[in-house]
């Protein structure tokens, strides 16, 4: 396993030494290849804290985190003795609103900033920049432009290209589509899905959008008040009990399916997981 959490808890030190428990006794492992995970949970449930443990920006206050053979514990001295920087190359973390981290004069310079920090030769970094700008759906002409004259969506893409150019094995994205219009969101989700499908990388997306969970994820993690309460396949998550207990929103596909079943007794043979599949399946039954 590339990432392994063993009984991990994390406590933020607050004002007047009153701590705030952000993660509570978390056990989980993530493979270096082939996973497509979504991480969900209400605001303040510890999602971002969990993600920051995965590339060693934070170390647990209890328990152990193993990331590609490096062990992190609450022992700060021991943690510091290990080289943590290489982990951050192997586990790429894209923060929420990544457009705010842009600072170079050109898009090209900004994309190669990460790779060069990790010692990638200049020529190769350039090659990667050319490749990644296309993967995120922009063309090479963007490379010479200033990142500050781009639209919000374009900035997001550029900053994601900057992380991709580090060639991480695992890619973690914190609410990558917030603020984008529907087509922009769909296009970007497609990019992440392609990275997973075509390059075989593990992708984890933190999101509030249950449609994303249902349509894309093979595995879903649910955090509630710092505890991992669900780790499994998306369809199992939306059982009536979980939806009620955890106050989950239903994905639109499921909501419609269930409403039609309740009202008209329409039952679909296989569970559709995309809009297209749902419309096709319903078309067959209703006509």
């Amino acid at each position: 396993m590339a990432i392994k959490f063993e009984r991990v808890s994390f406590q933020y030190r607050g004002v007047d030494d009153k701590g705030y428990l952000a993660l509570a006794d978390i056990n989980l492992s993530i493979a270096a290849q082939g996973e497509f995970i979504t991480l969900i949970g209400e605001t303040g449930s510890g999602k971002s804290t969990l993600a920051q443990h995965m590339n060693a920006l934070l170390a647990p206050t209890e328990g152990r985190v193993h990331i590609f053979g490096v062990k992190l514990t609450s022992d700060k001295k021991k943690n510091r003795k290990q080289r943590l920087n290489p982990i951050r190359q192997r586990v790429g973390l894209v923060f929420q609103f990544p457009e705010y981290q842009l600072f170079e004069e050109t898009v090209l310079k900004d994309i190669i900033f990460g790779p060069k920090n990790f010692g990638v030769p200049h020529e190769e970094a350039l090659e990667r920049a050319k490749k990644m700008i296309q993967i995120v759906g922009l063309d090479e002409s963007y490379l010479e432009r200033s990142p500050f004259n781009l639209s919000g969506g374009e900035k997001k893409r550029v900053s994601i290209a900057g992380i991709l150019a580090m060639e991480p094995e695992i890619l973690i994205l914190d609410e990558p589509t917030s603020g984008l219009d529907p087509m922009g969101r769909n296009a970007l989700l497609k990019v992440f899905y392609d990275i997973h499908e075509k390059l075989g990388k593990t992708v984890m997306i933190i999101t509030h959008d249950m449609d994303t969970v249902y349509e894309y994820a093979k595995r879903v993690l649910v955090l509630r008040e710092g505890a991992l309460v669900y780790d499994g396949e998306p369809p199992g998550l939306f059982s009536r009990k979980h939806v009620e207990d955890w106050n989950l929103e239903l994905p639109e596909i499921l909501r419609i399916q269930r409403a039609l079943e309740e009202r008209f007794g329409i039952r679909l043979e296989k569970n559709p997981t995309s809009r297209k599949e749902l419309i096709e399946a319903l078309g067959e039954v209703v006509m």
């Binding site: 087509m183 769909n186 639109e252 419609i256 039609l260 809009r275 419309i279 319903l282 078309g283 209703v286």
Partner: peptide
């Protein structure tokens, strides 16, 4: 304008394209 139909209306749209006459279903969607 880079927007998309709400899913129930997308389904409705599909039904109408197939000339469905199930008015009750349409209203429900």
């Amino acid at each position: 304008s880079n927007l998309e139909l709400l899913l129930p209306l997308e389904v409705l749209h599909g039904l109408e394209k197939k000339k469905s006459t199930n008015e009750e279903l349409k209203e429900f969607l």
